[in-house]
Design a binder for these strands. Structure first.
Lengths: 395, 395
DNA sequence: ATACTTTGTTAATCCGATAAACTAAGTTAG
DNA sequence: CTAACTTAGTTTATCGGATTAACAAAGTAT
């Protein structure tokens, strides 16, 4: 039902050109015609529109390839701001970027939002606080806000918050209310799904992949054809609640043997405390002990490896992705874990999917929110974050 | 890259009209304009083309709705033949239908194709044998063959046979060779994926669903947006090789604890033989014993229920489909098993996906092959099989 | 018989993509 | 240094496809 008249056709080709430019800028009009297989005339027309709407600009001329020099086109990033808010169970973080994904200021922390009665007010206050922080760090006026993305630690489908294990936001009309109050496009989504968008935009993976996020629970974002697949009820990728041990440890979800009872940070730390006899032990001490070749720590990690191996195997069998991205503090600190998880893949049905570490690490959720905003703003699927500006150059 | 010029637009709208007509025939031109949201003129133009190419015909006039009576349009089924061949490990079956999916003759049996050296010749012989059988049962000449689909019990991606556990067809250029020899469109695909297409065309499920097939192994076809998702290497849906028991029974695939070691027909019959002490016991005797309330049989079935419950749970968490179709001889004979598998769903993350039995049963693979041919022939995604002609009216 | 409805076609128009010709601005070879 | 060639981008003419509006065809209702 989507593309059936000429206006849709034009819209489609505009998206195509914008996406190509965002991915491979700078490009000339002729480059764009070659890449998109559109005629030069069509490209020139659409480019005129994009120039006029100040989405792109001409940045000068490139090197001649034996004739007239090409006029190079590039995105105009500082004409708008994208904002992402991560409603984590224990704190709220926020980040604002230009339209190329480069941060304007550092990441900000705020109190956790847990009370459903005041949740919408709180998020509104955080949004306004973020704007003030931006104003303080910039003397010039801010360009328009092109969108706000809010990461929910729970299940989301469209504007509906369906289930939130860590707080009680289910059923709250967060997105519609904020849209009205802030007069800004608002997108909400599951945290693991945002992470997957972040990995897509950072270049860790593309096309068809799964991004696994390990923290207190285990979630995943499934990307098919450069688009999120959230399933019928927004539960696609709830891989923490796949059963790995029949009749195993009971899980708050109601089932027994869910894999997140064996391989989540919480499960691993619990096990590490048992093994080490230190009730105050945490993920950091486990990592340090492992680096010091502590055999008890290695034992705990072998459990992590084993169950992550099962998860990766099962993911490969179910969805057979092009690659699997892992975002976890354990694999970030101990890169060899990735190889050990790979070594668990013994199924001879084809090669195992390439396993790659996240390029974004902890702030992946926020960058994923930014990606959510930008892909809607530009009406594209893939985009490419500009190199991250080092912290010292920020305000 | 697909739809960017006007020709693509026309092609898209032609497909849209054909798909709508196949699903809801008979329809008038005005009905089609309303359903597709295209203008009456565009519909009339495209319909003229479809009439001229004898894909559809006018079957008369419908009831007046207060004005001129509509001219009803319908598919013209007997202008072409679709053929499907199922290369099962123990036998080969074949089926031919008209373009509405109604069988021309009964299903035919042939010897199993196991020798890679002669496999292509054998399949060619079976195809020609099927044509002869059709000629024998019809005095009139056959219309053209619009395509041949071949179900492979193994992994397929495009024309490439990647892995076949039961015979050695991997790497064989079956499709390209037959295309050349028979001068007919040839499609090959995984058996479970074909089954999913069959369920789609039979109306058992639509849009986004998973069709699980249980026999000697366990496979699944994943349908997203009415299209098959076969994954990077054609392994998507190889759910039999997801691990359900860490360190469990070893599987020929190289892993341990694969779910098909616990819930496939082979696994269940093995267990039934152990429990009953009868080395000749089979699935039929298990079903009969269960119907006679034999407690040992019920025990064996409870294992089936338990592991199928895990599989359904994990599928729901990974892909969150609109529904899950189960095609197995056990659930077909003992429908209450479906309810018992449903009862295993204890995860409170949203409602469990509706679990429905296959409408096609055993010949689902063949009908799925037919669907494969027809959807390519008409360039549509969804289609709807005409009611099956009862066996006694066939030749 | 007259007025109204619905179906489907004809005619006029609009919109978007393309090809061909052309202008602009360079490089290269002699 | 100029003539010939190349590449970039625009102008012009044309084509293909979708839509609107008007109309013809064929019915119903009173």
């Amino acid at each position: 039902m989507s593309k059936q008249n000429q206006r849709d056709l034009r819209e489609h080709n505009r998206s195509l050109i914008m996406e190509t430019l965002l991915l491979k800028q700078p490009l000339s009009r002729t480059d764009l015609a070659r890449e998109t297989r559109l005629s030069k005339v069509t490209v020139s027309e659409i480019v005129s529109g994009l120039l006029e709407s100040r989405n792109i600009h001409e940045i000068g001329t490139g090197h001649s390839r034996g004739g007239r020099r090409p006029v190079l086109l590039a995105q105009l990033p500082q004409v708008g701001v994208a904002i992402a808010i991560n409603l984590a169970p224990d704190e709220t973080t926020s980040l604002s970027t230009w339209l190329d994904g480069s941060p304007i200021d550092r990441e900000h922390q705020w109190p956790a939002v847990v009370d459903p009665a005041s949740a919408i007010d709180q998020v509104e206050a955080i949004y306004r606080g973020e704007l003030e922080a931006l104003a303080r760090c910039r003397d010039a006026a801010l360009p328009p806000i092109v969108g706000l993305a809010i990461a929910i630690h729970g299940n989301v489908r469209g504007d509906d918050i369906l289930f939130t294990p860590y707080y009680s936001l289910a059923g709250l009309p967060l997105a519609p209310q904020l849209r009205q109050r802030l007069a800004v496009p608002v997108w909400i989504g599951n945290e693991a799904n945002f992470t997957a968008l972040g990995e897509l935009a950072s270049g860790a993976a593309r096309d068809n992949f799964v991004a696994i996020s390990v923290h207190s629970g285990i979630g995943a974002g499934i990307v098919r054809d450069n688009d999120l697949d959230v399933g019928r009820q927004g539960f696609a990728g709830e891989v923490g609640h796949t059963i790995a041990v029949p009749g195993g440890l009971s899980c708050p979800c109601g089932n027994a043997g869910c894999i997140e009872q064996y391989a989540s940070e919480r499960a691993i730390v619990t096990r590490w405390r048992e093994v080490s006899g230190d009730a105050g032990a945490d993920l950091g001490s486990l990592i340090r002990a492992s680096q010091a070749n502590d055999s008890r720590a290695r034992g705990v990690l072998s459990q992590f490896i084993r169950y992550m191996g099962i998860l990766v195997n099962n993911l490969s069998r179910f969805v057979d992705p092009d690659s699997i991205v892992i975002n976890s503090r354990l694999t970030a600190a101990l890169p060899q874990l990735i190889e050990e998880i790979k070594a668990e893949q013994r199924c001879r049905l084809g090669e195992a999917a390439p396993l790659v570490p996240s390029l974004l690490g902890d702030p992946a959720i926020l960058y994923g929110g930014i990606a959510m905003v930008l892909r809607r703003h530009y009406d594209v699927r893939r985009l490419h974050f500009a190199a991250f500006r080092p912290p010292d150059t920020r305000c």
